[in-house]
Amino acid sequence: MKTKETLLTIQGICKHYGQQAALSDVTFSVSKGEICGLVGPNGAGKTTLLRILSGLIRQSGGEISVAHPPRIGALIESPSLYPNLSAHDNLRFAALQCGIDQVEERIQQVLGLVGLSDVDKKKKVKDFSLGMRQRMAIGLALIDFPDFLILDEPINGLDPAGIKEMREIILNLRDRFGITVLISSHILSELEQVVDRYVIMNKGRVIQDLSKDDLKAAVAEKIYLSTSDNPLVLTSLEQQGVSGQIGGDFVKLPPVWSVQELIQHVLTLGVEIKAIYPAGQGFEDYYLNLVKEGN
């Protein structure tokens, strides 16, 4: 399997406001052409980090390095739009600021990418729906065709149709144009449908960095077994090639053996079975347990 090229490396980033630490030793990397999801509760430091990466504020310490200077597009917090201009004129103003050649061609291309090609050219942005404004804001971030796109809560407040449209836009930008995306969102079920990797933050720190496959393995169904002697049972099972771990009152095991096979094995050890059941864990529960452990 070909190793992906690293586009951005964040090493030991800190940000302080007086005595208050908003970020502490944040370290992770983003590979070229991937969609990386930034996850965490309110106050975790996600927006502060995205503002640093966008060049809006400076970090107090740490380093940000890139393989080559990327063009960066960003949608941070509320979209900055000119409400009394049309989508076309908002994009024209941004294109002229960026010194883009063939402005009209670029505007039409971007409008097509964000699904606004059919909007009346005279319709002002102030009369757009929330979903249209969000797409318009992404259009502004795309006007210079960035290598790296930063999106802070782009689906906040959108209805299901708007969320679906936003998802399709983000996937298209990666799959068709190879744009790398760093996206933060509280809607975990939606992130699961678009991201390749997750960076989970809490209290200004990265508490976990895992791929989509890593997450799938972490939340996969396990068998929970509680006995009168969990260490003995775990040792015996490991000798049989069944790896597991003890958590609380339970031995957590992968579903290598059936529940009935486990029961039969444990009974041969002369150990009392208190409880045994298979159970999976969704991303939401996994995330909430991680955050709870960090509090």
Rank of each mutant, 00 (worst) to 15 (best):
G241L: 05
S78Q: 14
D159R: 15
I76R: 04
Y17D: 08
G139H: 09
D196T: 04
A141H: 11
R176D: 10
L53V: 00
Q20W: 12
E153A: 03
S24A: 11
V271P: 03
G294R: 15
I276G: 05
K274R: 15
L81A: 06
R205V: 05
A279K: 15
V242K: 10
K212S: 07
F177Y: 15
I35L: 01
G33Q: 12
R51V: 00
L151N: 09
L113F: 11
I10N: 05
P254G: 05
K121E: 12
N289E: 15
I155A: 01
E261I: 09
S65A: 11
L267P: 02
D249Q: 15
K15N: 07
I155P: 03
G270H: 14
S258C: 08
V242N: 11
A217K: 15
P83I: 08
K2Q: 12
V195C: 04
L191T: 02
L111A: 00
S86Y: 09
P41C: 03
G157E: 08
T6A: 08
Q193D: 04
D249K: 13
P70K: 05
S189R: 13
P154H: 10
L225H: 03
P278R: 11
V199C: 02
D175F: 10
P160T: 01
L253W: 06
V110T: 07
T268E: 13
L171Q: 08
C98S: 12
I163G: 03
V194K: 08
V206S: 02
K4F: 05
K216G: 04
L215V: 00
R135K: 14
L232I: 11
N42S: 02
P69C: 09
D196V: 01
C98N: 13
I187M: 14
I100F: 08
K216H: 03
S80C: 05
R197P: 00
L81V: 03
S189I: 10
V103F: 08
F148G: 03
K274N: 11
Y277D: 10
Q109M: 13
G12T: 08
V266I: 14
Y82P: 04
L111S: 02
S258T: 15
F128Q: 12
S226N: 10
L113R: 15
Q11M: 07
I207K: 01
G18L: 13
F128C: 09
T268P: 06
